[in-house]
């Protein structure tokens, strides 16, 4: 079932962030949301995830759905190692070997036996990504997931995302049109929803 957003409104301190937003996220596809900072991209996905309440409007198609997310700030358990972080959100079927194989696929090495707080920003980003992709979900939301990755690594990670989200509904916030093309995603430009 597609996810449909209808007449969504949200304001903070009397400042309208989302104004009668209507959009559809097709089931089983990747949709990228683009738009300048402050236009309400993160607000929109927070409403989808149930972390914010809309002032008015409707979201259809989320009932009983399981979520996974890559947040802007990674949100990892700092004193745990990378594998433990991934296994925290996944069921028992995600073995250490599977996690390690996934890490290799996105070029993550030298992460073992250290807490994630000791890893670089790019490494932590990839841990957050594997955590989300290996969890059980119906809708995956990623907020600027490729930020801070160099060009070569970005392509490798995009390939991993494409390969592992086949047939899944994914929403990605990005500022980079090239990422949209590489992901072969549907594009929604938030600027189209401005007054």
């Amino acid at each position: 079932m597609d996810i449909q957003v209808k007449n969504l409104n949200k304001s903070f301190n009397k400042q309208q962030v989302l104004n009668d937003v209507d959009m559809t996220f097709p089931e089983g596809r990747i949709t990228c949301i683009m738009g300048p900072s402050g236009i309400g991209k993160t607000t929109l996905v927070y409403i989808l995830m149930g972390l914010l309440k809309a002032d008015s409007g409707q979201v259809i198609g989320l009932e009983g759905k399981k979520f996974a997310a890559v947040f802007q700030e990674d949100r990892l358990i700092e004193h745990w190692d990378a594998i433990k972080n991934v296994q925290l959100v996944s069921g028992g079927e995600v073995t250490k070997d599977l996690v390690k194989r996934s890490f290799i696929q996105i070029g993550l090495t030298e992460y073992e036996k250290k807490p994630v707080r000791a890893l670089s920003g790019g490494m932590r980003r990839r841990v957050a990504m594997v955590r989300a992709l290996l969890s059980e979900y119906d809708l995956l939301i990623m907020d600027e997931p490729f930020k801070g990755l160099d060009e070569k690594l970005k392509n490798q990670v995009i390939d991993y995302v494409k390969e592992n989200t086949k047939g899944k509904t994914v929403i990605i916030i990005t500022h980079d049109k090239e990422e949209v093309d590489l992901l072969e995603a549907q594009l929604i430009n938030m600027e189209d929803y401005e007054d």
Binding site: L51, F67, A69, E73, R75, L88, V89
Partner: peptide, 11 residues
Amino acid sequence: KLLEMARVFGL
């Protein structure tokens, strides 16, 4: 922020 993460993943 960690509590929000836990909510989203349904921990």
